[in-house]
Design a protein around this nucleic acid. Structure first.
Lengths: 206, 206
DNA sequence: TAGGATTCTGGCCATGCGGTCAAAAAACGA
DNA sequence: TCGTTTTTTGACCGCATGGCCAGAATCCTA
């Protein structure tokens, strides 16, 4: 049982890394299919075609598995979208590209985005505080706030409260995916472009 | 056991209406305190200082209880906020007043707003579809879309997609309360005013 | 190939859930 | 007052959950 994520990180065996990846993938597909509240360990294990104990063996518990799912998907989104955002010449285009980029990612990896969205919405600690939402504000809002501030410095954006804007933007993007999930025929890219327009107008100078 | 909400609505006895109100209130307080996922019938019953069977006796089940909580809070919000919104002379002010109004309601009835917000976020049917979110779009988005269209007709608002805007506005308001719930020292009214500014700028002409 | 380390299985545990029920209690009406 | 109806209780049901573990299977290396 080497799966403790302790600082003294032992390297994982090949088979262990493969199993973890397989289980994470099964978790993604299960959550996307039946929703977070119905995605029990037993159901995830069945999707992965392994015994339930395997999950407990490779992960510290359901919480760590969910953490890994989020990290996995979030990292992939960052790798696909961040370069495009950074390549833009001005902050307004960067903002639009960000929204457009995550929507395109969602179209290409529907299950992964659905799972991420579900975990964000439902995964709470025992006290009911969200595990990934605003509770560690820095982690999730800081990149966006950096972008806003850059735009404010350059004069492209007016002087607005970056925290309120970051919370709002995150919420509108989440809502876009939730709406898309419950209305699969909804035109996601059109929604994304329209949302980009809304967001830009909300904050651009003057 | 007269609590069936059948069309042939028998009138409820005084004591039954009182008990239902008491239980709804206990549900509100329990959800606000421990979050929707931890608000079991047993816990709500303990809060109400009645036996668990009483809830089953007066309500068809947990779902009906949640429905009643939503109806109760939602109705009250409507009564307090709608008149103020309708009294405004133009659509831009109406929009700001709406956001400001619900924030003021939340400050005055923190537990009720928290409970409503929690139910919106977590209450799903067995298929994972939200019970109050966008699934019955008309119910929740239509009033807002009406307001948008009125503003578009009057020329105050530009030509934007009212559905995208309605989904986004609802999401930003929910996020405001969720952020406030996890950051109790957050200045809710300032957030509301700032959000009003964002929303107005997003859609006003040209 | 032998033997230790790693991985997997399948059943088991305690817990909590929503819901039900017979019987007790309370309220009501004649 | 007494019989009926309404309401409440507390135990109980079946089920699902996350987690645990002894033993079996497999893998790896000496």
């Amino acid at each position: 049982m080497r799966s403790k994520n302790e600082p003294g990180g032992q390297k994982r065996s090949f088979i262990e890394r493969a199993r973890r990846a397989q289980i994470i993938d099964a978790a993604v597909r299960t959550i996307a299919e039946v929703g977070y509240p119905n995605a029990s360990l037993a159901r995830i294990a069945r999707t992965a075609q392994v015994s339930k104990g395997v999950i407990s063996y490779h992960f510290d518990g359901k919480d760590e598995l969910m953490d890994q799912v989020v990290i996995s998907v979030y990292t992939q989104i960052g790798e696909e979208v961040a370069p495009r955002v950074l390549a833009e010449q001005n902050m307004e285009r960067a903002l639009r590209t960000h929204v457009r980029g995550v929507a395109e990612y969602a179209l290409a990896h529907r299950e992964r985005m659905t799972a991420l969205s579900q975990i964000f919405r439902h995964f709470r600690d025992a006290q009911g505080a969200p595990r990934f939402d605003g509770s560690q504000p820095e982690a999730i809002y800081q990149p966006m706030e950096e972008l806003y501030r850059a735009g404010q410095r350059s004069g492209e954006f007016r002087d607005f409260d970056v925290r309120v804007m970051a919370v709002s933007q995150q919420a509108t993007i989440d809502a876009m995916f939730e709406y898309w999930r419950t209305h699969p025929d909804h035109d996601l890219l059109a929604h994304a472009d329209e949302l980009g327009e809304l967001l830009v107008r909300a904050i651009r100078a003057p």
